[in-house]
């Protein structure tokens, strides 16, 4: 997994609540058996005017110019500013894969859906939860200033570059550690194999029907 330490990038504002993972990446693209290549179809139904297909040439499709990612001022964005309950619905990890493939490494919102939040950390994306008023202020600054950018410092737990000073954020210690170092948590868990085996021995005595072999 790609480590996340510091990131400076243009902020794009997605001003709607309850953005679900169907919206982030529609189902027809879930037929892929790969982890990459989802970027051109990120927010497909919002971004294009026609219906997307897995093998279509996206460069030929009509764009919805009302959608923020089609606005020149947000070109090259790597930080998405969002509203409540971002990433709700389906558990599809294709959602963070699509964000990552597009180039978005950080999502800032007042709240996230649990499964999406968890999936982000497995893919080097940092979801930051801030207070409603902090998010409101960032929306205002993003709309008011073309090229509005922020620096995210995960080590320090700070967002820099906003008007009114630095904004502190907190991330669970284990997730922060894995993200900072780009750690593969399967490897970490396998280091605890002896504990897992001990648990299995104990459990087998208590509930033998759970062990068919």
């Amino acid at each position: 997994m790609q480590a996340f330490t510091q990131l400076t990038g243009i902020v794009a504002p997605l001003d709607r609540a309850n953005v679900d993972t169907d919206m982030i990446i529609p189902k027809q693209f879930l037929k892929s058996i790969k982890r990459s290549g989802f970027g051109p179809n990120l927010f497909d139904e919002l971004r294009y005017l026609d219906e997307g297909q897995p093998d279509a040439d996206n460069s030929q499709r009509p764009l919805n110019m009302d959608f923020i990612l089609n606005h020149q001022r947000y070109a090259g964005t790597s930080i998405l500013l969002a509203r409540d309950n971002f990433g709700c619905g389906s558990s599809r990890e294709h959602a963070p894969w699509a964000l990552m493939d597009y180039g978005i490494r950080c999502v800032i919102a007042p709240s996230f859906a649990d499964i999406f939040y968890n999936n982000c950390f497995k893919n080097g994306i940092l979801p930051i939860t801030l207070l409603d008023e902090q998010v409101d202020a960032l929306f205002e600054q993003t709309f008011a200033n073309t090229g509005f950018a922020l620096t995210i410092d995960l080590e320090a737990g700070l967002i820099k570059g906003a008007q009114g000073g630095e904004i502190a954020f907190s991330i669970d210690a284990f997730r922060r550690h894995c993200l900072l170092h780009g750690l593969d948590d399967i490897g970490l868990t396998l280091e605890q194999a002896s504990f897992i085996k001990r648990y299995e021995e104990k459990r087998k005595a208590q509930a033998p029907w759970l062990f068919a072999d």
Binding site: S91, E93, P96, D114, N118, I186, I196
Partner: peptide, 23 residues
């Protein structure tokens, strides 16, 4: 019972466990 992402599918296949925080 709960849903998981694909990285966790791989994690469960490989370790029979998940790293979790209690709800």
């Amino acid at each position: 019972a709960h849903g998981i992402g694909t990285s966790e599918v791989e994690h469960v296949l490989a370790t029979q466990c998940l790293i979790q925080k209690k709800s």
